[in-house]
Computed example of a mutant assay.
Amino acid sequence: MKELPGCIAPYKKTPEFTEENIPPGLLKDHTTKEGVWGKIMILSGSLEYTIQEPEVEIIELSPKKFGVVEPTIRHHIRPLGDVKFYVEFYR
């Protein structure tokens, strides 16, 4: 998994989601726009984060391990039991 570049800044944040109210679009493959990075922040519990490109990479995210979403790269998440998280967007 890549790291967030130092030359970007946050500009938007989602509401907090739980396993009960995750938007369906996050559970299936999707991408961010060109130039838009994401940071998946876990407040409690854990998520499985699957990056589809260039190779499939599956990472378990937790409060101690956040996920980095690269621009235009297909990915999805899956809750692993009870979870509370949000996504912060950077450009």
Score class of each variant (00 low, 15 high):
1 M>T: 10
2 K>Q: 13
3 E>D: 14
3 E>R: 11
4 L>I: 07
12 K>L: 07
12 K>C: 05
13 K>V: 15
13 K>Q: 15
13 K>A: 14
14 T>C: 09
15 P>D: 14
16 E>S: 14
16 E>K: 12
16 E>M: 12
19 E>P: 01
21 N>W: 06
21 N>E: 09
21 N>K: 07
23 P>Q: 11
23 P>S: 10
23 P>I: 09
24 P>D: 10
24 P>Q: 12
27 L>D: 07
27 L>R: 13
28 K>T: 12
29 D>M: 12
29 D>W: 10
30 H>L: 04
32 T>W: 04
33 K>R: 13
34 E>T: 13
34 E>M: 10
35 G>R: 06
36 V>S: 04
37 W>Q: 01
38 G>P: 00
39 K>L: 15
40 I>T: 01
40 I>H: 01
42 I>Q: 01
43 L>H: 12
44 S>V: 02
47 L>V: 02
47 L>R: 04
47 L>H: 02
48 E>S: 08
49 Y>S: 01
49 Y>I: 00
51 I>T: 06
55 E>S: 15
56 V>L: 13
56 V>H: 08
58 I>T: 15
59 I>S: 01
59 I>M: 03
60 E>Y: 01
64 K>I: 06
66 F>Q: 07
66 F>A: 09
67 G>P: 01
69 V>S: 01
70 E>D: 10
70 E>F: 08
70 E>Q: 15
71 P>Y: 02
74 R>M: 10
77 I>S: 00
79 P>F: 05
81 G>W: 05
81 G>N: 07
82 D>I: 15
83 V>M: 03
83 V>P: 00
83 V>R: 00
87 V>K: 02
88 E>H: 03
89 F>R: 05
89 F>P: 00
90 Y>E: 07
